[in-house]
Amino acid sequence: MFRLRPSLFLTPYLLGALLLIALPAGISIYIAFTRYNGIAAPVVVGWENFQLLRLDPLARVALTNSLIFVTQSVPLRVIGALGLALFFNQPRRGTGFYRAAVTLPTVIPEAAYALAWTWILNPLYGPFNAILRGLGFAPPAWFADSDSAMLGLVIASLFPLGEGFIILLAGLRHIPREIYDAARVDGANRFQILASITLPLLAPWLALFAIRDVVMSFQNTFTLAFITTRGGPYYATFFPTQLIYEFAFSRMDFGAASAVMLLVFLVTSALVLLVYFLFADDPFDEA
């Protein structure tokens, strides 16, 4: 009976996706092949922006930094979220409070969170180094030192993992209770249940979070680095998103900025397609 009209309710969503995602993606593909300063009309220059980018040492640094951050932060965040979800899965006394406490850092506005870490990891007066010195260590200078700035960002990135925590809690709820009961009847112990039931059945959710986390790290590193280090010292925490910002708003070179953005977008899309191929049969249809 409601044959056609449900689509009416979907119009804002689909129109918005077209205007805010498809159209900007199209624009960036075009601008990436032009020379454009935002004022004069864009001039098509073919692959020039990409060729210049290939020779740009800053682009290489940004890419390397991004890879370093992802390979350090994402595995730790996935393991952390998994451990927390497993630990706080069963409703017991206090679980409500514990879950809220674990999720709290995720709720803090990114900019305020980053600012807080400039104090926590302040080399001279910050509480973290005060504790380390008290314990007899010689603490690093964190954001003031190009050798330890990246580690500082990785540490700060380990607390806001509420999203993964919630995704994995949802995944755990989807494992039918009967499977556990059957395993227990067969005499399986806790570790056997974890290794042969929980983890395999949770694998798609883990992969979803891991890939989303890689993708989101492009975004999450921007605010964190923008507030704490501005990409420094000596470009030690300079990421592709800052390269885009730098090209676009400092040098007014929208062509080069779009070229970087297009590359980020392509890497992102490839990762997202990977999710699609992994879960095309099982697209998280239940919740």
Binding site: R212, M216, Q219, I244, M261, F265
Partner: peptide, 8 residues
């Protein structure tokens, strides 16, 4: 899955 920074 598409981050805002890929299109900003």
């Amino acid at each position: 899955m598409i981050p805002f920074t890929a299109l900003w």
